[in-house]
């Protein structure tokens, strides 16, 4: 309906003809209605994901209904049932846990509503029940960070300290694995200390402080790798308070690419960050559109790109401007 208003010169007959000619493509233009069961807003990244999803929908002329589950699976299941009852065109699901989805996803399949997972995967046994999963590869994120470090230090010997995410979190384990594997290939690079910073700024700071004390006032440390930007921001503070110059005395590389990290890089306090894009919905909309219009079945896993941003980039300010209003 809105489209017609925007196209005042097109006659009714012509538009009817065009619709019949273009067939499914016209349906695409009419806009999809998508239900998005979001986990909650426990972190800035998640808030950004929600914002970007809304922006994507608006750009495409689609409608997205967002249900905030406040970290509870039961709320997500309720939301999905309500989406099914409303007869949406597709359901995006950012699952809070990996298991327990079989029943409700079967209901969606029976109602012929495709489900696309965002950001996280579920139990492999339920693979037939969803169309595709759009996620990043957190092992790859670690590898990108490791690769940057390897290239940056070249043949110089380099002692690395690593600030890990929460013990037991799969993201932490994966980002460690990717980075460590990449770095281990180089005889000149050594990971000398590794401790958990629980993904928080204050723990990141405290861990870095202890690394500095334990490694001769930080003189033995050549680079620090943190599993997320928040811990790195804390670590940068610790280095500054110890009279060190982060970014030059000690190289930094972390993952996530939150706006504050861009501010740090602009201030030359940090060197590099690997982006975990909040735009999981973008590829999901594309895949859903193609599936609805042409029946194209997407691959089971759509991997988002793990873009590397460094302080040498010329567009840091632009990226920051883009990101700063996303709700990080």
């Amino acid at each position: 309906m809105n489209n017609r208003n925007r196209l005042p010169s097109v006659t009714l007959a012509a538009s009817a003809l065009a619709m019949s000619l273009l067939g499914a493509a016209a349906a695409r233009a009419e806009g999809l209605v998508v239900g998005f069961s979001q986990i909650g807003s426990e972190s800035g990244w998640r808030a950004a994901e929600t914002t970007v999803t809304k922006q994507d929908a608006k750009k495409n002329g689609d409608t997205v209904k967002i249900a905030d589950a406040q970290q509870k699976q039961e709320n997500q299941i309720k939301a999905i049932r309500s989406f099914i009852a409303q007869g949406v065109d597709g359901i995006f699901l950012a699952p809070v846990v990996a298991t327990g989805w079989h029943q409700v996803l079967s209901e969606a399949r029976d109602a012929k509503i495709p489900v696309i997972l965002l950001d996280r995967d579920i139990d492999p046994a339920d693979k037939p029940l969803y169309l595709t999963a759009v996620t990043s590869d957190s092992v790859h994120e670690g590898a990108v960070a490791g690769d940057w470090l390897v290239k940056t230090v070249g043949a110089k010997p380099c002692n690395v300290v690593e600030i890990e995410g929460t013990v037991g979190a799969s993201v932490a384990a994966n980002r460690k694995e990717g980075f460590d594997d990449e770095v281990k290939k180089q005889p000149n690079i050594k990971i000398i200390r590794s401790e958990t910073g629980d993904f928080t700024r204050s723990q990141g700071k405290q861990v870095m402080e202890s690394f500095i004390k334990a490694e001769n006032g930080g003189k033995n440390i050549c680079a620090v790798y943190a599993h997320n930007d928040d811990m790195m921001i804390g670590a940068i503070q610790a280095m500054k308070e110890a009279g060190l110059k982060p970014g030059s005395d000690i190289l930094t590389v972390s993952v996530d690419s939150v706006p504050d990290m861009f501010r740090a890089m602009i201030a030359h306090d940090a060197n590099a960050t690997v982006e975990l894009t909040p735009d999981m919905a973008g590829p999901a909309f594309v895949a859903l559109g193609a599936y609805k219009s042409k029946g194209t079945v997407p691959p089971k896993w759509i991997e988002t790109k793990s873009v590397l941003h460094t302080s040498a980039d010329g567009d840091l300010q632009q990226v920051l401007d883009q990101k700063k209003d996303l709700g990080y």
Partner: peptide, 15 residues
């Protein structure tokens, strides 16, 4: 105790 554990370099799992 916390500071000591961080300084010790003990794997995080043992904390």
């Amino acid at each position: 105790m916390n500071t000591g554990i961080l300084l010790s370099g003990l794997p995080a799992e043992f904390n």
